[in-house]
């Protein structure tokens, strides 16, 4: 798994590629925590190159949702591949945070 970080319209965008599994989920959590600890309260996760997410990965997504629930905080995912979208949808996560088709739509819509 690889993570690249960019800033756009006042938000931190973490673009993740590869598998989010037992081995890599802690790395994702660390990267998100680093962004939040740095004072960023608008986090967008671009999942366009995420091919798989395990239950450990789902837990990281929920832990982030818990940290970003103050007024003005923003947290969303975008560009999900079919398999990952299906897991999030059927697990019920789409009611906790928003999922957008693209970075642009996320930044315009959240």
């Amino acid at each position: 798994m690889e993570i690249t970080t960019a800033t756009r319209d006042g938000a931190i965008i973490l673009s993740i590629s590869g598998r989010i599994d037992t081995a890599t989920a802690p790395t994702l959590e660390q990267a998100i925590n680093k962004a939040i600890d740095g004072g960023n309260r608008k986090i967008l996760l671009n999942f366009s190159a995420v091919t798989y997410i395990s239950s450990g990965g789902l837990r990281v997504l929920l832990a982030t949702a818990k940290k970003l629930k103050q007024p003005g905080d923003k947290y969303a995912l975008c560009n999900l591949v079919t398999e990952v979208h299906k897991i999030l949808k059927l697990a019920g996560f789409t009611t906790i945070f928003s999922i957008y088709p693209s970075e642009g739509e996320a930044l315009a819509g959240w």
Binding site: I53, S55, L58, A65, E83, I87, L90, A91, G92
Partner: peptide, 19 residues
Amino acid sequence: NELFTIMAGRLYYVTYVME
């Protein structure tokens, strides 16, 4: 793999809401 991830995800969701 898919079913167990969904089941675990549902439980995490319930846990999240209860918290």
